[in-house]
Design a protein around this nucleic acid. Structure first.
Length: 439
RNA sequence: CGGGGCGUAGCACAGCCUGGUAGUGCGCUCGCUUUGGGAGCGAGAGGUCGCAAGUUCGAAUCUUGCCGCCCCGACCA
């Protein structure tokens, strides 16, 4: 993509409403535009990152055996009356009345909707286990939206729902998602730690939240330092026993958010206990028959009798992750995107647009990158060098390739790693090989 | 939901107290000079001062009401 043809409204100054770093950088890097409190438009740069995160989340859900569907944003109130949550949910639920005076709502979550799908079509234990997920916009009318995209009212969430015949099956489904989450967050370049969590209004008796460590996180977390050095599971198709082992291993270390942390009951000694701040980016629940019972989601068991299915739900805040990743990965100059989610892999800087030699070398290098399938943003604009460097650092592409009058004669390209700041002068071919290898 | 703050050009802000032709910097457009870390000079474009009512000869400025947004706390993917 040529920058001259792109839409990238960057800002030199900090918008005053943006207090935390991810919000500031997202606005400055032209990723989002606020529409109203807690509601944002996604501009091309932001949308690309959002889609990359969504893609990774989807791939890992698919690998874990979950099946993607798409449920609507607008739901009928009657479904929620069945579960009893229409009255329980309170003002966070955005309620809408259609032209026929029917009560509708903008879904804050989809347990009722998915349970309705399940009970309509699944009648036999032979069709279990089943895990259905979707990646859809949610709306929760938060009293106080803040932190930009991190706590919006409208947000993109992956939510999966598992259906099993009994508790043991449900626990395996839960463990399966637990492991899928470890893999997902690792691919996103994040250190995410699972914490035992209170189950809250969704109900149930087993729940973990996944926290990304970042200094600007909303809550304080306490954990054993060895938790961060655990090996991320990397295989597919673990058996139930293997899943349990992995979960047992990861949960054997002490980890608690401030609301669950009790210094008296914490047996981790001083140096081993780490205290940091974190952002919740995922949450998994086992809640048994809370919804299946209320809504009549039963299947015929092996003995021919109806059995109420055991369910769990598993959320990942996809849009929140955009902010979460920035919180976890930035410096004074701007964002540092992990390669897996970067909007482009390489930023190509033409230091002297309008100069025939520079233009020629850059155009040539750019077309080679494209031919090699490297997603590059080519700054072919007439700006000055400093301005181009600053902008490239701000938007945080993992690799920068700079071609200017100095190197063009000798056929050299300067390649910079945005994360480490390391620069190297390479021949065009070597630079190309390096960047192709990374993409 | 309790407490606090702010609405003036795309962004950051001054002007308001003490009413009298709407300003500054950045950004944007054009020209020239520059060109390896957010350039210099010159010339431009861009604002019904959040909305409404009131006071006044006259309101960005004073009064009242409304709307919007942000921050702190309690609550949440």
């Amino acid at each position: 993509m040529r920058l001259s043809r792109f839409f990238l409204p960057t800002l030199k100054e900090d918008p005053k409403e943006a207090q935390i770093v991810s919000h500031r950088l997202m606005l400055r890097a032209g990723m989002i535009q606020q529409s109203s409190a807690g509601i944002y438009s996604w501009l091309p740069m932001g949308f690309r990152v959002l889609k990359n995160i969504e893609r990774i989340v989807r791939e890992e859900q698919d690998r874990a055996g979950a099946l993607e569907i798409l449920m609507p944003t607008i739901q009928p109130a009657d479904l929620w009356r069945e579960s009893g949550r229409y009255d329980d949910y309170g003002k966070e639920m955005l309620r809408i009345t259609d032209r026929h005076e029917r009560d509708m709502l903008y879904g804050p979550t989809n347990e009722e909707q998915v349970t309705d799908i399940f009970r309509t079509h699944v009648k036999s234990y032979k069709n279990l286990p089943l895990n259905l997920y979707h990646i859809q916009w949610k709306f929760r009318d938060e009293v106080r939206p803040r932190f930009g995209i991190m706590r919006g009212r409208e947000f993109l969430m992956k939510d999966a729902y598992s259906f099993d015949l009994d508790y043991e099956g449900a626990k395996t489904a839960y463990n399966n998602m637990f492991v899928a989450y470890l893999k997902t967050f690792a691919r996103l370049g994040l250190k995410a730690i699972p914490l035992r969590a209170a189950t809250g209004p969704i109900g149930g008796d087993l729940s973990h939240e996944f926290i990304v460590l970042a200094d600007t996180g909303e809550s304080e977390v306490f954990y054993h330092k060895d938790l961060l050095t655990q090996k991320t599971p990397d295989r597919d198709n673990y058996t139930a026993e293997e899943l349990q082992e992995i979960v047992d291993q990861w949960t054997s270390f002490y980890a608690a958010a401030d609301d669950m942390h009790d210094p008296d009951k914490c047996d981790v000694s001083g140096d081993d206990l780490v205290t940091r701040r974190g952002i919740e980016v995922g949450h998994i629940f086992h809640f048994g028959d809370k919804y299946s019972n209320a809504m009549g989601a039963t299947v015929a068991g092996a003995e021919g009798k109806d059995v109420t299915v055991s369910m769990g739900s598993y959320g990942i805040g996809v849009s929140r992750l955009v902010g979460g990743i920035i919180e976890a990965s930035h410096d004074d100059d701007g964002i540092i995107w992990p390669e897996s989610v970067a909007p482009f892999k390489v930023g190509l800087i033409n230091l002297k647009s309008g100069d025939d030699a520079c233009d020629g070398a850059c155009d040539d290098f750019y077309s080679k990158l494209m031919t090699a399938g490297v997603d590059a943003l080519y700054d072919d604009t007439a700006g000055r060098a400093g301005e181009k460097f600053a902008k490239m650092d701000l938007i945080g592409l993992p690799w920068q390739a700079t071609i200017g009058p100095r190197g063009v004669k000798s056929g050299m390209v300067e390649v910079k790693n945005r994360g480490t700041g390391e620069k190297q002068e390479l021949s065009t071919d070597d630079a190309l090989n390096l960047l192709v290898g990374k993409a």
